[in-house]
Design a protein around this nucleic acid. Sequence first.
DNA 1: CGTCCGCTTGACTCAGATCAAACTTGGTGG
DNA 2: CCACCAAGTTTGATCTGAGTCAAGCGGACG
Lengths: 197, 197
Amino acid sequence: MSDIASLLRALEVGGARRALDPGEMLFATGDRAERLYVVDDGRLLLRRHAADGATLTLHVARAGNTLAEASLFSPSYHCDAIAEIPSRVLAYPKHDLLRAIRGDAAVAVKFLSAFAGQIQTLRGQVQLVTIRSARDRVLAYIRARVPPGRRRTEIDGSWKAVAAEIGLTHEAVYRALAGLEGEGRIRRRGRVVTLAR
Amino acid sequence: MSDIASLLRALEVGGARRALDPGEMLFATGDRAERLYVVDDGRLLLRRHAADGATLTLHVARAGNTLAEASLFSPSYHCDAIAEIPSRVLAYPKHDLLRAIRGDAAVAVKFLSAFAGQIQTLRGQVQLVTIRSARDRVLAYIRARVPPGRRRTEIDGSWKAVAAEIGLTHEAVYRALAGLEGEGRIRRRGRVVTLAR
DNA sequence: CGTCCGCTTGACTCAGATCAAACTTGGTGG
DNA sequence: CCACCAAGTTTGATCTGAGTCAAGCGGACG
């Protein structure tokens, strides 16, 4: 998956380990961006607060994912990072990384690759969040999670977390799921969902 | 806009122009990924087919957007690209780009920075589209367009296009604008908007 | 064994979608 | 230079569906 993690391990750059409890904050909006993180284990949420107090999950970072890539080129973080479950991360000082990247184009290319993946993920999310109907949005979310050629997928995290990720209330998500199952478009047992033909 | 586009223009790498009719396919899933594209004019859809036969639009690429960045790092395209309206694109051979990136860490860093910018822009868009109230969403859109320290901005394109971009109907946008002007939050003449203090 | 949290469903409300219609603007061609 | 057409803009009336509030169930965990 993310060869960034292994790439970082191979570099001289040392990563400091840090453990987080559920709900613990790794960094907050406005903090000086001095580190880039790799999720070793667990799950972290990148969140932003809207003016009206609502919180939006911008990204769900899982084991192997990098966190706050954009902060490499930004003086401060522009969102909060919070552990959803007990998690461990590796922290790499931004300056060391930038030095390594500037010194070795091959390293830079690896980073580019990881960034490109992020862009794709985010585009998918923009597209998803723009779908107005809750039913269609949930269905699109599921479809995007089913590996090509397969029919089944397991949602990781709770449906409530999914709701936050796709910009719906959890009630709307549950109703959409119930509706889709009623129509026979999907079958579901807990977090395992199967697309109907 | 997309500094990737201007970055590409600045490189020695030449871009081949290509015109597409509505419905014409630029590339299909599984094709060998040999080029990265920049949309010069028009609108292209990136689509994927789900297991249940449905078509999923992953992204709508407009003028200035790059297409298939991820393909730089993948041997084949993983979605279809189709022109929605008459469009023109610039095609950059992947090998030339990769050579330029690998050969010069400074170029690589420029790309990285541009990609990081893309990521931030996209995160901002996700956040914007998630704002539920039409009034607040339009206001946030305007605020994001006003240069720091200034009060005025000119929207490029029509308000109708803005509506599509931020996931509202054009009626909702016009009403939101009228409401904001009524409240005295903004002043507006055509496409020029001034924020009230 | 009790508490917390995810899950689920119901009733009600309201903002934005939808449908409709008129006015304005800009550009094109005769 | 003007007639005309297309597209954007504006406003009104109605409807729909997601948000909100509320309440109950069940499993996980200390």
